[in-house]
Design a protein around this nucleic acid. Structure first.
Lengths: 143, 143
DNA sequence: GCTTACGATCTGCGGGCGTACATGATTTGT
DNA sequence: ACAAATCATGTACGCCCGCAGATCGTAAGC
């Protein structure tokens, strides 16, 4: 009786390949809306809930805190997010989506989900359900 | 009836998080054997089958052909691989593992697999089987 | 033989990223 | 009041990567 587990590629190799396929599939969607990868990630994080500090946002999306500043600058300039000093602690900037930003995010996300569905289209619905549930279970929340 | 599919994170976000967790889990294993990530990938590719050209190897592992030269130099210096001019076409270098290289690869792979099993240890065996099968189905072979 | 094509290698460019450090504004603890 | 901590920001360094030539040796077609 053969052991399929011994012959499969490394988990890491498969995840990397899937990641590359996802990036390739989603790049056109992002480009169509003129949003960068990091921009989309920021919009996604802020759509879930507004953030009280930029450091918290950086932690939430697994980015360096200096790296997201440029992204925030651009999103703010396009009026997709608001970055307002907290009246109670004027060191911190309250971050939230504008209505326009929320709308754009919804559009991009719809496209991203469609691209993902395309990649998953070869699966049975049972396999897809298990796969997505397990993947969610295995992808750790950032501290 | 709630729709769990609408609330889940993007597939891309989950894959990236899982990838980071895998890298973190496997880094100590690689360091213990003094092998770089690229080195391990090369050993893995050559363990499957010897390669007739370095360009073919680069394509197989999704790396730039100039990138792998340094990796091959190091592996050759440690006598883990052989890089011999093809007598029939002396432009190309035949690449294959040495017995030592095959042995080291087996050790590292055992450690890598153990780290991966650790990450998967929270799953039921049915979930794990489906997840790995689907993941393999979704991770495209490089051209 | 001569031209063209191919493989390996080296070098340099530009971009993305993480890290560290410095600064200025502001809050907090004593 | 004063010192220490916190937050956003800017700057600079180094690393890794993909990509585009340029070079050299070799092979293949004419």
């Amino acid at each position: 009786m053969p052991d399929p587990d011994r012959d499969r590629p490394d988990l890491g190799a498969m995840v990397v390949r899937l990641g590359r396929a996802l990036i390739a599939a989603e790049r056109p969607v992002l480009a169509a809306h003129d949003v960068s990868m990091w921009g989309y990630v920021v919009l996604s994080a802020l759509a879930d809930e507004p953030m009280r500090t930029q450091a918290a946002l950086a932690r939430a999306i697994g980015a360096d805190k200096t790296r997201i500043i440029g992204t925030l600058d651009e999103l703010q300039e396009r009026a997709l997010i608001e970055r307002e000093p907290d009246p109670e602690d004027r060191r911190v900037r309250l971050l939230r989506l504008t209505p326009v930003g929320r709308q754009l995010y919804a559009s991009v996300r719809t496209g991203v989900r469609a691209a993902e569905e395309q990649l998953l289209s070869g699966l049975t619905s049972a396999d897809k359900r298990v796969f997505l549930r397990v993947l969610q279970q295995l992808s750790p929340e950032p501290d």
